[in-house]
Each structure stands twice: as structure tokens, then as C-alpha cells.
Design a protein around this nucleic acid. Structure first.
Lengths: 353, 353
DNA sequence: CTTTCAACTGGAACCGGTTCCACCTAAGTA
DNA sequence: TACTTAGGTGGAACCGGTTCCAGTTGAAAG
């Protein structure tokens, strides 16, 4: 909780009404030079026990805390991490960003959290802004960046960068990813084993992750030699999803050979679909089963609670954040790429047929 | 989106591989002194058109962006706002913090967002930490601070401070609040007019807001000369709510004269109750009506969707953030206290009887 | 009793900006 | 012609730290 510096007295009334204590005040009181104070604070050079004691005493009596700004200026590091999140309206990422913030704060780093809003342009401008803000490192969470731009940013630049929940295939960029193809297969295999044969996939196809889940969906069909009706793959813009509409899905559901199960590329879309089906008086899971992906908090709160794929986003953030801080501090993480596997959480939105 | 500084070229590859351009480079290239460059950047002194042009040219060719850290050091302002939020696990506040962040960024301020986690001690330590981080101002969102400490912090200190969704009565602290007593009455009046006579109030009683809503609940009863059964007021710790249990409520619901309506002091608790009732197979709203307070996003997504009191948190944040920036920039907001009124949103979790 | 070396310490430059003050120049005024 | 005066500019100090370098000291080694 404490962001660095010594523990202080218990009153909030410090610093004698706005007058800031500087290293010079301590130097004067302890009768030593600035250099020595600095050495004591940073443990960066020999100081006799005696003077050290005097300095610490002086710091305590004046309740001194080094000015981080000045320190940043000479050290050229700001103790700040930039976190760029794909879409903060998606609770999964909202959650992720909070994990990240907490993690960094535990290690005495501030976070600047930015919402890329699914827009590569916005993303690029944040990337640039962060550079000028002198962040020590950047964590890209679920961000969709065209490979080229990001690579040029990264290679031309010395700002450490780690991607979580996304990667740029073939690149050397540090990343923590989930096996989304595997996850997609997981869902379809589960539905198959529950007796479903007509399974639709509903997505915006916007991110690589979503495309990978689709690939898993296709692979699972292929493994069982099942045909896929192309009209069972519904792609529609994020904007439409935010508006809560999906005409194509509604059309599909009016067919007599409609799907018995719907697989949404993420929980957000699954929840929207749930709303749509309720509006059309189609019972879930009695008439149609729904599976999501992400396991956001709402998924377990709503009724029917959502069968979904759980991604250990907290663990992933932990991993990514650890890697990033490693690099920031001059180390080298063992792995450039960590791949984690999601698992299925069975709830009420699916049924056997 | 742009955090200050000029528009730049379109490639992310800037600054010649990590070599930072400083004001001295510009001075050299434009053949003028640092002072003049500074005057051009800040428009803070007379510069001839001719030299100004030369300086701007130089800045463009080298793609120069002033170092914010150095600027902060001499100007003693960091363009950073501290935002302390009561409880980030509560989506209502999660939302609020995002509005705040967005607002400040639009005005070129960074935000440091901290979760007080319902703990005054944590809160105090953040307050202190922010002081040492040299934030330009602090926005307290729904934070529960013992009056004394905060006042001493505020008076001893020159950091501008604005409270949103909470206040310290009798103090001069800038604040934007909702009329929670009014809101509490609103709910009870609505339930009365729907025919309900046995209405329970369920809370943690932790915040002043919740206590005010209770006061409204009581006032509405008094206005109609109705007795309140003391066992209809259920108070239980936040921790228990996070765990999703409420034994006292379950006991109350087993009585034959059980309440016909439950009024939760916020949506989070309402959602937890919904889950509890579902587990006990009590139908909402057929058997028991539920009303929440806050109108968080999930309230409209879940089934049954929640009748609740909508608080224009976005507008409140706007107000509070505007006030704060006003003060930060040396101005004086017209009002020290802005009081806003919530309104009721009728959905599916309540019925007439 | 010198020499050597390590421990300790202070001075000054530096990080990259801002700002006060002094100076110069050219135009306006007495 | 001499005297203001305002516009335009550079120099230097300053913000509050870090760090290199050189100097002092005291004890151990020769």
C-alpha cells in the first residue's frame, strides 16, 4: 500500500503547511552533503554507521520523502507502467486492467490505464503518448495491433513491452497467451458430447483470439467429419453488439433447422444473445443452448448462468506483469512466450439433448 | 487522445533509436537560447515572428516533445490527478472511476486510480501517498473518510480535493452529492403505491449514503404513519455480502409474515439477494419484489432485470472533475456543494400486489 | 616512519526544463 | 539631440535529486 519511502508519523498533517522538505534540508540538519543523503537513501555507496544514523534521524524528524519527480529526471525512469487495454466496456478486460494495476502497485509502480476502444489508431496514439510520458514499460492487454506498426515501435525503441492475451505470431515480442484454438475445440467437443449437432458460432471476428476460437470450432467439426453450414457462422461488427442487435442471428433462429446451440466468441456477446432470445421468448437452455467465452463476473450472476470457457486472466496478468517488471529492471525472463490453457465451466445455459 | 505536445509524423519510429531530443538540440538548430524555445512552447513572452518560425521548424524536423518530467520539476505540477474510489469490486464505482479517468485525460491530465477497498486506513495511506507523488489534485469517489482526518489533511494542505457521491456534513469541502434520503423515499413510495406494505431494508450500513437511504426508508413510513418492524431492517458486513451470504435475510423470509418487497441499499447487494432467492426457489417478482439502488450495468442485463434507483454517476463525475480542474487551475467553482437527484427505473424485479 | 589503500565524504556537474533579470536595439516622445 | 520605452533575446540560477571525481583520513603494511 505504501508507495515507497519510509513509514511516517500517524498524522496526515505533515510538511508544515505545504512547505516541502528537500534533500538540502536534511543535509543541513544532519550536517552532511546532499551526496551522502542520496547514498543513504539508495544504499549506493559507503556511509559510516554514525552518519547514516544522523541522516536517518534527520529524515525522521523532518518527515522527509524524496521527490519522485526530481529522481525521475536524473534517473530517467518514472516508476510508471502504461497499460493499454483493448476494450474497457468488456468486463473481462476491465477486470484484467485492475489486476494489472494492483500488481504493479504492489511493486511500487504506478499505472496509466488506457482504453484502446478496439481502435488501432487510438492504440497507436496511446503507444506514442506513453513514450512521451516516459513510462518505464508497457503492458498491452488483449490489444489488436497490426504487426508491422508494433514491431517498428518495439525495435526502434527501448521501452520494454509485453503483450497479454494476444501475440504477434512469428515475432520476438514477449507475450502471455491462451490457446484459443484449444478453447474453441473444448466448447464444440462439449456440445457434441451433449448431443448437439447443429452448433452456430457467433462473433465479430475482430480479434485474432476470436478467429482462433473459430478455428477451434472448425477443427472440432473436422475431427468428427461433420459439415459446417456456412450460415451457422455469424459475423457482425462490435458496434452492433454494443447496440445489442443481431438481425442475422434472429433470422437463423426462425429457420426450422435452426441450431440447437450457440457458441459466442465471448461472454459479452453471449449475454447480448441471452437478452435477444429472451425478447423472442426462446427458452435457454430448453430450446437453445448458449456457451460463452471468458467467464466474466456477470456470467455466474445472471439467470440462466452461463456455460463458458474460463480464462485465468488473473494468472495471465500476473505472468505478463512479472515479465515486464523483469525486463524493466534489466533482467531477462526465461520465456519469450507463455501459453496457458483455458477450461470449461459448465453452468445452466446448456442442456443435453 | 493526444496528451499534449504537437502533432507528429505518422511513424512510430521516432527519436533516432532512443536518443531523446532535448530543448538544447532545438536551441542549437534554431540558433537561439533555451529561454526562447521555452517562450515559444509556452507562449510565455515576446518572440518575433521570424524566430518563432525558426523554432517551430526546428521542433518539427527533430520531432521534439518537451520532457514532462523536467517540466514538472520546475513548474511543481505533474498534470496528474489522484482518484480514490471506495470499492472497485462494486461495478458502480468501477464505472465511475472510468468516467473520471476519461474526463481527466480529455483535459490532458493523467489519473492514478486507487481502490480504498472500503478501508479508511487504506484510504489514508493513499491520501498520503498521493501527496508524495505530487498529484495536482485528488478526487474522492464515494469514499468514506472520518471527517476529522480528512479535514486536517485538507486544511494543512494545499492539494485541491473534491468529493463525489459523499460529503462531510458541515465542512467546506467541495463535493457533489446525491440526495440519498430522497432516493430512499422514492423507492418506498413506489412500493407503497404498488400495494406493498411489508418492506424490508437490507444494507451493510457502512456508508453515509446507505444510512441516508435508510433514513428515507424510515421517513416514507413515517409520512404514511406506518410502523416499521425492526427485524425488517437487516444490517450485515460488506465482507459477508462479498461472500454472497445473508443468514438473517433467509431467516426473515421463512416467516409467514415475511416482507413482500426487499429494498437493497445498493444494486450489488440486490444482485446477491437475487441469487440467494433463486437458490431458495423464491420467485422474483411473483413472490417477493426487489429494488436496488445505483443502476449498475448488470441490473439491466440480468433476469429479472432490476428495478432500481438510477444515479447519474457520469454527470456527477463530470461535475466533480470539472470543479477539481477549476481549482487546480487556480479558479474558484461557483458552488462548494452540488446536490443532484436520482430517479427510479422500473424494471422486472417488482410487481403490483 | 613512510607508503598504500580502502573507507568515507564533499564539490560540482548534470538531468531538461522555467523564469527572473539584464542588456541591446529601434521607434516614439520631449 | 537626448531620453524613454517596449520588444526581443541571452545568461544564469533554480527545481530536487544522482553520480563522478577528487580529497581527506586512519589503519595496515613495508
Amino acid at each position: 500500500m505504501d508507495w515507497g519511502g519510509e513509514k511516517t508519523g500517524s498524522t496526515l498533517d505533515m510538511g508544515k503547511r505545504g512547505v516541502k522538505i528537500t534533500i538540502n534540508d536534511i543535509a543541513k540538519l544532519a550536517n552532511v552533503s546532499k551526496s551522502t543523503i542520496s547514498r543513504v537513501i539508495n544504499n549506493s555507496g559507503p556511509v559510516s554507521e554514525e552518519t547514516k544514523r544522523a541522516v536517518v534521524d534527520a529524515m525522521n524528524t523532518l518527515d522527509y520523502h524524496p521527490n519522485e519527480i526530481a529522481r525521475s529526471l536524473s534517473l530517467k525512469r518514472t516508476h510508471t507502467i502504461g497499460v493499454i487495454v483493448q476494450d474497457i466496456r468488456n468486463p473481462y478486460y476491465a477486470n484484467a486492467s485492475w489486476y494489472a494495476e494492483r500488481y504493479f502497485r504492489d511493486f511500487n509502480y504506478n499505472s496509466i490505464i488506457c482504453n484502446a476502444d478496439n481502435d488501432p489508431t487510438v492504440e497507436e496514439s496511446f503507444l506514442r503518448a506513453m513514450k512521451f510520458r516516459n513510462v518505464d514499460g508497457i503492458l498491452l492487454v488483449g490489444v489488436q495491433e497490426e504487426a508491422g506498426r508494433l514491431l517498428s515501435f518495439n525495435t526502434s525503441n527501448d521501452i520494454p513491452l509485453v503483450m497479454v492475451d494476444r501475440e504477434i505470431s512469428g515475432s520476438e515480442i514477449f507475450s502471455v497467451v491462451l490457446d484459443n484454438v484449444y478453447g474453441g475445440q473444448l466448447v464444440v467437443d462439449y456440445l457434441f458430447s451433449s448431443g448437439h449437432r447443429r452448433i452456430a458460432f457467433v462473433t465479430s471476428g475482430f480479434t485474432q483470439a476470436e478467429r482462433d476460437r473459430l478455428e477451434g470450432y472448425i477443427a472440432a467439426h473436422r475431427n468428427r467429419n461433420m459439415q459446417i453450414d456456412p450460415s451457422f457462422i455469424i459475423t457482425q461488427s462490435e458496434e452492433m453488439w454494443h447496440r445489442g442487435e443481431c438481425p442475422e442471428l434472429m433470422k437463423l433462429l426462425r429457420r426450422k433447422d435452426r441450431p440447437t446451440a450457440l457458441f459466442a466468441s465471448n461472454d459479452y456477446k453471449a449475454l447480448q444473445m441471452l437478452k435477444l432470445l429472451r425478447r423472442s421468448s426462446i427458452d435457454v437452455p430448453e430450446e437453445v443452448s448458449i456457451v460463452g467465452y471468458d467467464d466474466i463476473e456477470s456470467s455466474s450472476i445472471i439467470y440462466p448462468s452461463l456455460t463458458t470457457v474460463h480464462q485465468p486472466i488473473d494468472k495471465m496478468i500476473d505472468q505478463g506483469a512479472r515479465m515486464l517488471l523483469d525486463i524493466v529492471r534489466g533482467g531477462q525472463p526465461e520465456d519469450r512466450k507463455v501459453i496457458m490453457r483455458p477450461w470449461l465451466v459448465e453452468r445452466e445455459s446448456t442442456s443435453h439433448i
